[in-house]
Design a protein around this nucleic acid. Structure first.
Length: 232
DNA sequence: GCGACAG
DNA sequence: ATCTTGTCGC
């Protein structure tokens, strides 16, 4: 596990990472603070090879949902997967991808594959990166990290509160009939009702919102290129 | 001490 | 996340 000596920002021990999250939490905004009319929405997803972390950020025009751009970030893996510290593992590659998007094409709203505030310290990857990139963000996870919920009716758009320590931190949302719900939670600069609205507004026949679904697909493609002998 | 545990 | 073919079901 190479130490990132030239980048103290991400070169942390798990204990230091926890303290960083606790301090970043002070900057979290859980009220709607989005542009009057959101025109660009993005999706973030990561993939890995033995040594490399790859992040892809897609950019879609909203509400038409047409893919107009995507950027890739690739850096050496520097941190293991530890539940609750996902942002430390994926952050560097995501920042690299973000830096590769022309400023004028940077999304007004970002969807992440993982939790927002539905996290032990209220700082899942969507919240963490939302604060660092200073963008409204939403966490859409395929599985629960923390919290519980009542059964969700098997109807498109049905949802139930996700409760953790007596607080509503997100929602289990049925984005597709006959498929397990996804777990939506506010990342940064957005409320839960609005996060649910945008999630349902970007779903097109699949379980995941289009921005993250496409980012996942592109990350897989790029990983195969690396695995099949292309160095870069 | 025993489970739970995003990607 | 990743390793991987066929297979059940709509």
């Amino acid at each position: 596990m190479p130490r990132r000596e030239n980048c103290p920002k991400w070169d942390l021990t798990p204990e230091e990472a926890v303290r960083w999250q606790e301090s970043l939490r002070q900057h979290l905004v859980l009220e709607d603070d989005l542009p009057p009319s959101v025109r660009l929405v993005g999706g973030v997803d990561s993939g890995y090879t033995d040594t490399q972390a790859i992040a892809v950020i897609t950019v879609f025009v909203y509400p038409e949902l047409e893919l107009i751009h995507h950027a890739i970030g690739q850096v050496p893996v520097h941190f293991p997967y530890i539940p609750g510290l996902l942002a430390i593992r994926e952050g560097p590659a995501i920042e690299a991808a973000w830096g590769n998007i022309p400023p004028e094409r940077r999304p007004d709203l970002l969807f992440f594959d993982g939790q927002g505030i539905a996290h032990p310290r209220g700082m899942g990857i969507a919240s963490h990166m939302g604060v660092l990139l200073d963008r409204p963000s939403i966490g859409v996870a395929k599985r629960i990290l923390v919290g519980h919920h009542e059964p969700v009716p098997d109807e498109q758009g049905a949802w139930r509160p996700l409760v953790y320590r007596g607080k509503v931190v997100g929602a289990a949302v049925r984005t597709k009939v006959g498929v397990k719900p996804v777990y939506v939670s506010p990342g940064h600069r957005i409320s839960l009702p609005t996060a649910i609205e945008y999630t349902l507004a970007t779903v097109r026949g699949y379980k995941l919102p289009e921005p993250t679904r496409l980012a996942d697909k592109l990350a897989r493609q790029w990983r195969r290129k690396l695995a099949s002998g292309v160095r870069k």
